[in-house]
């Protein structure tokens, strides 16, 4: 009987029967669901909008261009007739980014191995944070640091490379031996900037290697390095590839650090130890303030190309990650 009184309302009226059909709470659910789904659609609209709006300005730019947009090196969109093309920009962007990747990938993988499998467990998380902090440094600060500190300190190694390996076309310096404001400088600073993302992605996959595989290798009498070669690195291969793609994507789009370091020119040169070169992003940053109508459209057209390239690289990276997630159910 005491239990029954609890269910009765104070006035002693019979309790209100909850209605099973047509309950009003579902309106709240519907609104909330629509709100969240609408936001998600809005996000997709933005992505589509980026492509549409950039494209809408790319068309008039290409119409105004009197030369081939893809093969022309120089950039005089506001002269008459308008002359501009992305050949030099594309070359410089790829060269500096690949250089950065070449330098950052081995270091990033090493750092990830260190944090995941070499460092004492107790320290590993803290050391991981430390490397992640590198990603927090704003790019303009890296640009300033690169230009005023790193580049002057890199003259020694640049001249060493030029003097001893000048027979390799990349290290030849037939035109200038100042060793500053070069593609090599830009590549090193970009490498520092993409190192955190590479090491973070690799670290995640290395930590996911099942303990069983590591123990299996050790039980066969593998040394620590052989365990890495046998169990950890093969398991993490797709993760390493996608980290490289993500790092590449970031390097391709980096703007101010490159703009501060590089002395821009519209040439296509292999000589990474000589000043000069240009990238899509740096060109936009540097030309923007001088650009008039056609000039702006031309810059937007080049931005469209950069957008498509980074989109492809990032999609490839995500695709590799997703495929790995789907097929890693081996154990």
């Amino acid at each position: 009987m005491t239990q029954m009184t609890e269910f009765r309302s104070p006035q002693g009226e019979p309790p209100v029967e909850p209605q099973l059909a047509g309950s009003p709470v579902r309106a709240g659910d519907r609104i909330f669901r629509t709100l969240t789904a609408g936001s998600s659609v809005f996000l997709l609209v933005i992505i589509a909008g980026i492509a549409v709006f950039l494209f809408s300005r790319t068309v008039p730019a290409l119409q105004a261009d009197s030369v081939n947009f893809f093969t022309e090196r120089t950039w005089f969109p506001d002269s008459a007739p308008s002359v501009f093309g992305i050949a030099a920009l594309a070359w410089g962007t790829l060269l500096s980014s690949l250089l950065a990747l070449l330098l950052a990938l081995p270091v990033g993988i090493g750092v990830a191995l260190f944090i995941a499998h070499y460092a004492p467990r107790r320290l590993a998380t803290g050391l991981g944070y430390l490397i992640d902090l590198l990603a927090a440094v704003p790019s303009v600060v890296f640009g300033l640091w690169g230009r005023d500190f790193l580049v002057p300190n890199m003259v020694g190694i640049s001249s060493f490379l030029a003097e001893n390996f000048g027979w390799i076309p990349f290290f030849a310096t037939p035109n200038s031996e100042t060793y500053t404001q070069t593609m090599f400088n830009a590549g090193v600073v970009l490498a520092v900037m993409i190192l955190p993302i590479i090491s973070a992605v690799c670290r995640e996959v290395f930590l996911q290697v099942p303990q069983g595989h590591i123990e299996a290798a050790m039980a066969l009498g593998a040394t620590r390095w052989e365990t890495m070669r046998m169990a950890v690195l093969p398991f993490g291969r797709s993760g390493m590839i996608s980290s490289a793609m993500l790092g590449l994507g970031r390097a391709l789009g980096e703007t101010v650090a490159v703009a501060l370091i590089l002395s821009t020119s519209y040439g296509i040169s292999l000589h990474i130890l000589e000043p000069g070169g240009n990238t899509f992003a740096a060109n936009i940053a540097l030309q923007y303030s001088f650009a008039q109508d056609t000039g702006i459209d031309a810059l937007i057209a080049s931005g469209m190309v950069l957008f498509v390239i980074t989109l492809l690289v990032n999609m490839a990276a995500r695709w590799i990650i997703a495929r790995r997630a789907a097929f890693s159910g081996a154990n």
């Binding site: 992505i47 980026i50 931005g303 690289v313 999609m315």
Partner: peptide, 17 residues
């Protein structure tokens, strides 16, 4: 998928947009 892809959009492209 596109949220992941968006994290890789260069900041200058966002600015241009």
């Amino acid at each position: 998928f596109f949220v992941d892809v968006m994290t890789g959009i260069p900041s200058i492209v966002a600015g241009l947009f």
